[in-house]
Simulated assay, not measured.
Amino acid sequence: MRFAWIDLREVPGPQLQAVVDAAVHTRMAGVLATDAELLATLPPTVTRVLIPGNPATDTAKKPGAKETKETKGADDSKQTKATAGAGWDVLLRTFTTQDELDALAAGNRAAGGTPTAGFIDVRDDRTLRLSCAGAMALPYTVIHFADPTKIPLEIVLAAAESAEGKLLTTVADLEEAAIVFDVLERGSDGILYPPRTADEVFALARLLEATTPQLELATLTVESIQHVGLGDRVCVDTCSHFEEDEGILVGSYSSGFILCCSETHPLPYMPTRPFRVNAGALHSYTLGPENRTSYLSEVGSGHALLAVGADGRTRRVVVGRAKLESRPLLEIRAHAEDGQLVSLTVQDDWHVRVLGPGGKVLNVTELRTGDELLGYLATDKRHVGLPIGEFCKES
């Protein structure tokens, strides 16, 4: 489960208490600060991370620098003071060499010791290899990548696949946080995020909660199929490969959808296009993240939709383009067990497909009364795609 530590070091003074309160209220996993007394005020629901100086600027910890007796003594003094006042759960220390990493790992193995996390600034191949070693050896490894490319993060994620510890990546903003969480489809376990205001903490909380739901699909029974003539239909080309039992939910009514199959299955005369769904007429609704619907006519490049499997699993997919063309259309009407009507208008051609129970692939032109389809019944009425509690009748 992805998580975030809130970095308090750059929070403006007037905003500090509000940011701390927001971090506690949203149950952020951790709060990081140089002030042990501030950390001591936080509840035990938050991991309190103490930095003995700033890992990014502490002279004694810059790459290639030696730790002097004076700087080591200063750090030990701060640790002793923090221990006296309690208040922290994890100590964050910079490592720049293998010897420093070995010392941190040895300290963590000592019985009764306070967990020590490692911070490393990755700027070249040497520090990249050292960060991989840290991710395997420490309970937490916080990495700052100097370059904007995400290739080094991919390398660390691959190297630390079997690691028991947690990897955190520093990010500058929410946009970068979203990217980091998607790298290699797995992403960094956590991020270190420096908010400026409490609003940014709440926005981060929404990002962390942005998972797609498991849907309870319904079995629908076909009651009629009708050729309705020429109209405009939309093909949705996504930036992802669909699985053989995946598609998107489409329907004429916002209260009911049918699972339209992707073009992952072989067809004569044309190659498979596993990124595409021949979705339906342009007026149709389709379901996206956060329980929001869109008309197919609104769907376009950069739009997010839900890919839905025959077992109800979902994932977010991004639209690369939507292609609208005039074609003969076919209306499928089906009903749920309780009699609720679901309607779908699609291109009138046998290579357009929907899914039945168990992921069975069904050509729309071969459907017959009594055939069973997979669908989704929504209890919400809609206004501009958002659920709303009002009277609404569709026919």
Score class of each variant (00 low, 15 high):
Ser188Pro: 07
Leu130Ser: 08
Gln15Leu: 04
Tyr253Ala: 10
Asp371Ser: 04
Ile258Ser: 03
Gly256Ser: 08
Glu161Leu: 12
His351Leu: 04
Phe145Pro: 00
Glu10Thr: 15
Thr68His: 12
Ala117Ile: 06
Gly320Gln: 07
Gly134Ser: 08
Val319Ala: 03
Gly288Ala: 04
Glu216Thr: 15
Glu372Lys: 13
Thr365Asn: 09
Lys72Val: 02
Glu161Val: 11
Phe242Lys: 03
Gln340Phe: 04
Leu386Gly: 00
Leu168Thr: 03
Leu386His: 13
Arg2Thr: 14
Glu243Gln: 12
Ala172Trp: 03
Thr264Met: 00
Tyr253Phe: 12
Lys69Tyr: 04
Val201Leu: 09
Glu100Ile: 02
Thr211Asp: 13
Arg233Gln: 08
Leu38Gln: 07
Arg353Lys: 13
Thr221Arg: 14
Phe202Asn: 12
Ala198Ser: 14
Val319His: 04
Ala74Met: 05
Gly356Gln: 09
Leu101His: 07
Ser224Thr: 13
Leu208Asn: 04
Thr68Ala: 11
Phe95Met: 01
Ile143Tyr: 01
Asn291Gln: 10
Ser326Asp: 04
Lys381Glu: 12
Asp338Phe: 09
Val250Lys: 05
Asp21Asn: 13
Thr57Glu: 12
Leu267Pro: 03
Leu249His: 07
Thr41Ser: 14
Arg327Asp: 04
Lys166Asp: 00
Asn278Thr: 04
Glu100Ala: 11
Glu366Tyr: 01
Gly375Val: 07
Ser188Glu: 02
Thr379Met: 07
Glu372Met: 02
Ala218Phe: 03
Asn108His: 08
Lys360Asp: 00
Ala158Arg: 13
Leu329Gln: 15
Ala279Phe: 01
Val31Gln: 05
Thr116Phe: 01
Glu246Gln: 09
Phe95Tyr: 15
Thr47Asp: 11
Ile388Tyr: 08
Leu207Glu: 05
Val277Trp: 00
Leu367Asn: 02
Glu390Tyr: 09
Trp350Ile: 01
Glu70Tyr: 05
Ser301Tyr: 02
Ala110Met: 12
Arg93Gln: 10
Thr59Glu: 14
Gly118Val: 10
His283Trp: 09
Val308Arg: 01
Lys393Cys: 06
Leu157Ser: 09
Leu306Pro: 08
Gly190Pro: 03
Lys78Val: 15
Leu287Asn: 10
Gly53His: 10
Lys166His: 10
Glu10Trp: 08
